[in-house]
C-alpha cells in the first residue's frame, strides 16, 4: 500500500494477442488518498494535491490539498450532524467509539505499514497503533460517565431544584498533532466526539496516510456521516479558516508555533469561539488521556425549576 507512486511493469504481447505480464509479479492496486466529508470520500473540490515524502525522500502519495471550500463544506456537514450526534444516548456513542476500536484492531497491519512508511520503526508503529486502539476504548468508556463526574446538583437557598450538566459545545475544528499522526489524531478527536460534538480535523500535513485510512475505520463504525470530517492539506493555508469560521464553536490547535497560536487566539475573538492549545501534551503518556479533555469542549448548562413546599414544609401552602 502506498509503496510508490509509480510501479514499473513491463508488458509484452503474447502470441494469442492477450496482454501478459512478463514476470509472475502481480500489479499492485494503489490507494487513492481522499478526504472525508459528511460520511463520503470526495477529492478536494480544488483538484489540487501535494506530495509528502518520508525522510528517505520517498514520495508517500498524491494527497488532497484541501481548500477553504473543502473546510466550508466540512463545517456544513459537521453542523448538520450536531443535533443527531449530541442527541444520541451517551451509551450509543460509547458503543460507536468501541466499534471504532474494533475496526482499528482489525486493520492494525495496514496502519502499522503506513506508520512505517512514515518513518516509524516497526516497534514504535505497533506501539502507536495499540495505544490508539486503547485510547478509543478509554473514551468509549467515558461517554456515559463524564457527565456524572462533572455535573452537580446545586443546593440553592430558594425553593428551586437546580442542576448543572456539561453539554456539547457544537462544531469543533481541530488541527491535529503533526508528529504522532495516528495516536495524536485519535487522542484529540475521541474526547471531542465522546462529548457529543462534531468536528473537522486537519490531519498531519507531513504524515497524512494513516489519517486518511482512519477515516475508513470511522466509515465502518456506525459513526453517522458528518460527525468526524478529515481533511488533508497545509496548516499555513488553512489555520486561519479553521479559527475564523463563524459557525465553529471551538478550535483545538496542537502545535507549538507561537505566531500561529497568537493569531488563532486573536481570530477566535471574532465569535468568541473557545480555543485550546494542546501543544505540551505527550500523547504517549498517561497525561495524554483524561476526561478533562472532554470537558474542554463542553458547556456547563444550569437549569432551574421551582419546587413546591420546601420553604413551608409541613405548613401546607
Amino acid at each position: 500500500m502506498g509503496k510508490t507512486l509509480v510501479n514499473k511493469s513491463s508488458l509484452t504481447i503474447s502470441e494469442n494477442g492477450l496482454e501478459k505480464p512478463t514476470s509472475s509479479k502481480r500489479l499492485e492496486v494503489l490507494k487513492t488518498y481522499k478526504i472525508y466529508i459528511g460520511g463520503q470520500f470526495p477529492r478536494t473540490e480544488s483538484g489540487r494535491y501535494y506530495v509528502p515524502t518520508n525522510e528517505a525522500g520517498k514520495k508517500l502519495a498524491n494527497v488532497c490539498l484541501s481548500s477553504r471550500k473543502d473546510f466550508r463544506n466540512a463545517v456544513v456537514a459537521a453542523r448538520g450532524a450536531v443535533s443527531g450526534w449530541s442527541g444520541r444516548a451517551a451509551f450509543n456513542r460509547s458503543q460507536i467509539l468501541y466499534r471504532m476500536a474494533e475496526m482499528l484492531e482489525g486493520r492494525k497491519a495496514q496502519f502499522i505499514d503506513e506508520l512505517i512508511e512514515q518513518d516509524n520503526t516497526k516497534a514504535k508503529a505497533e506501539k502507536e497503533v495499540n495505544l490508539a486502539i486503547d485510547r478509543l476504548i478509554y473514551y468509549a468508556g467515558w461517554c456515559d460517565k463524564f457527565q456524572q463526574i462533572f455535573s452537580s446538583v446545586n443546593p440553592v437557598a430558594s425553593s428551586h431544584f437546580n442542576f448543572s450538566v456539561p453539554e456539547a459545545t457544537g462544531v469543533v475544528s481541530i488541527i491535529a498533532p503533526q508528529g504522532d499522526s495516528l495516536l495524536g489524531l485519535v487522542s484529540v478527536m475521541a474526547p471531542v466526539i465522546a462529548g457529543g460534538n462534531t468536528c473537522v480535523i486537519l490531519a498531519s500535513e507531513t504524515k497524512p496516510l494513516c489519517s486518511v485510512t482512519f477515516s475508513e475505520v470511522l466509515h465502518s463504525s456506525d459513526l453517522p456521516g458528518g460527525v468526524v470530517n478529515i481533511l488533508t492539506g497545509k496548516i499555513q493555508e488553512l489555520a486561519s479558516w479553521f479559527v475564523d469560521h463563524m459557525d465553529v464553536n471551538a478550535t483545538i490547535y496542537c502545535e507549538k508555533d507561537s505566531n500561529t497560536q497568537k493569531s488563532m487566539r486573536e481570530k477566535s475573538a471574532l465569535n468568541l469561539k473557545r480555543i485550546f492549545f494542546y501543544d505540551k501534551v505527550n500523547w504517549y503518556s498517561a497525561a495524554g488521556q483524561s476526561p478533562y479533555f472532554i470537558l474542554d469542549t463542553q458547556e456547563i448548562k444550569t437549569t432551574w425549576h421551582p419546587v413546591e413546599n420546601i420553604a413551608s414544609a409541613g405548613a401546607g401552602y
Binding site: N162, S164, I300, T302, H305
Partner: peptide
Amino acid sequence: ANTFNKFDPSSP
C-alpha cells in the same frame, strides 16, 4: 423553567 432571574452562589 417556570421561573426567571434566579441567582445563587452555589449555582454556576
